[in-house]
């Protein structure tokens, strides 16, 4: 296709001016699409290497615990979000009194967690001098709301869930951070604050995400709340 269509291509990330083979796609465009879709599918279905992540997180000096949700496998996890919000039966966590619990959850992109979670957690902890932080928790087959029973059991005033976001066609590795004040089972999504699209170099850097989160954490601790009320006071969110 002639370069004059570059007017369109340079104007948007959308897949414009792909050309045609008859009424279908040219072979190279077809394979490009398949590669992007394959990356997104693999990001959803390749299980998180929990041991490797635990080793990485141990570098923070904090204890690292592992839990699973009540969803026994990926297929159930995808069809039963309610199970992904509950801890597996018999899960035990050490109670305590902490300012903050950090839960690293595979979510819909274990790949995002493998790529970016340790770097993000380190960047966050660097900015929280003087905070008492509970043992780190790695959770699998987990939804955002699994952080509520985890944070509650650990005795944390705030829980932050670091979770793999639903992969897009050109963003299979996007991480999200969800802050909830006073974690307990049954918290509504409107009671959370979210920082999305942590995926350097294309999205937010670890430092940017950690900086924004640290600001939200301070504001949440001061206000004794999170969610819509905090959003109005806090820094601009992605």
């Amino acid at each position: 296709m002639s370069d004059a269509f570059d007017v369109l291509r340079s104007a948007t990330r959308a897949r414009v001016a792909l050309g045609r083979a008859g009424d279908g796609l040219p072979t190279d465009r077809l394979l490009e699409f398949r590669a992007a879709h394959a990356a997104a599918r693999d990001a959803v279905h390749t299980p998180l290497d929990v041991d490797a992540l635990v080793d990485e997180l141990a570098g923070t000096g904090l204890d690292v615990l592992t839990v699973t949700s009540a969803a026994p496998d990926r297929a159930t996890y995808l069809q039963r979000p309610d199970l992904g919000r509950q801890l597996a039966e018999g899960t035990r966590l050490p109670g305590g009194e902490h300012d903050l619990a950090l839960v690293v959850a595979d979510g819909l992109s274990p790949r995002a967690v493998a790529d970016h979670a340790a770097g993000t957690v380190s960047a966050v902890l660097e900015r929280l001098a003087g905070w008492s932080v509970a043992p780190l928790v790695v959770a699998t087959q987990a939804r955002v709301a699994l952080g509520d029973p985890v944070g509650e059991a650990l005795g944390a005033r705030i829980v932050v869930v670091v979770i793999g976001e639903r992969p897009g066609l050109s963003s299979a590795d996007s991480l999200g951070l969800y802050l909830t004040w006073g974690p307990r089972t049954g918290r509504a999504d409107s009671e959370r604050n979210c920082i999305s699209n942590v995926r350097p170099p294309h999205g937010l850097s670890y430092a940017q995400a950690a900086e924004t989160l640290a600001g939200l954490l301070l504001a949440s601790r001061e206000l004794g709340a999170s969610g819509v009320v905090l959003k109005d006071e806090g820094p601009a969110l992605e």
């Binding site: 959308a14 897949r15 792909l18 009424d23 699409f33 897009g168 066609l169 963003s171």
Partner: peptide, 19 residues
């Protein structure tokens, strides 16, 4: 364009699919 909705992050049909 190209089945890829870059705003809503899902895949629909492409213009070629309609043809």
């Amino acid at each position: 364009p190209g089945s890829d909705d870059v705003m809503l992050h899902y895949q629909s049909l492409s213009f070629q699919d309609v043809l």
